[in-house]
Simulated scan of single mutants.
Amino acid sequence: MLEQIRAINASAPFNRWAGFDVTAAGEGRAEIRLAMRDELTQYSGFLHAGVTGALIDTVCGFTAATVAGRVLASHYQVGFYAPAVGQLMIARGHVVKAGKRQIFANAEIFAVADGEERLVAGGSSVLMVATG
């Protein structure tokens, strides 16, 4: 499953540009790592909120794909808990409930600075199983 999700990730131009690295995927879970660089930050040097949202959207999608195949997000939300500052960001997602047509997934974003993880954002997504 990990190789399939990595192939999907590699096919997305935005994910390649951002540097999303899928490090785990299977059984309703997924993890993406993102090395920080200047192009991903906003004016104060934190990870840009849009990139944080993209991480949540993507990790929830990959999480859902591990149980349902092709999916499309119909809704997602993001909550910001602390400035996302560090050398690395880790997005971890898991399926909360998988139905026939919809999948509910949650995600957390951790900033890693000097080897320590700090929770900086969280979110959830409702995904539709793609048909046709």
Rank of each mutant, 00 (worst) to 15 (best):
L2H: 08
E3R: 10
A7L: 14
N9C: 13
A10Q: 13
A10P: 03
A10R: 05
P13A: 02
N15P: 03
W17P: 07
W17F: 10
G19T: 09
G19P: 01
F20C: 03
D21N: 08
V22H: 10
T23R: 06
A24V: 11
A25R: 05
G26H: 09
E27F: 00
G28R: 08
R29Y: 06
A30P: 00
L34H: 00
A35V: 09
Q42V: 04
S44Q: 07
H48P: 05
T52W: 02
G53C: 11
A54D: 06
A54Q: 07
L55H: 02
I56L: 04
I56S: 02
I56F: 08
D57T: 07
V59M: 02
G61T: 03
G61E: 09
F62W: 05
A65S: 15
A65L: 11
T66L: 10
V67Q: 15
V67S: 03
A68F: 00
R70E: 15
R70D: 14
A73I: 12
A73F: 04
S74I: 15
H75N: 09
H75P: 04
Y76S: 14
Y76Q: 13
Q77A: 12
V78L: 13
G86H: 05
G86I: 11
L88C: 03
M89S: 08
H94A: 14
K97P: 02
K97D: 12
G99W: 00
K100L: 09
K100R: 15
R101H: 14
F104N: 11
F104G: 07
A105M: 04
A105F: 00
A105R: 02
N106S: 07
N106H: 09
E108R: 02
F110M: 07
A111K: 06
V112K: 02
G115I: 05
G115M: 06
E116A: 13
L119Y: 10
V120R: 06
A121G: 06
A121T: 00
G123D: 11
S125Q: 09
V126E: 12
V126W: 01
L127V: 12
A130S: 13
G132W: 01
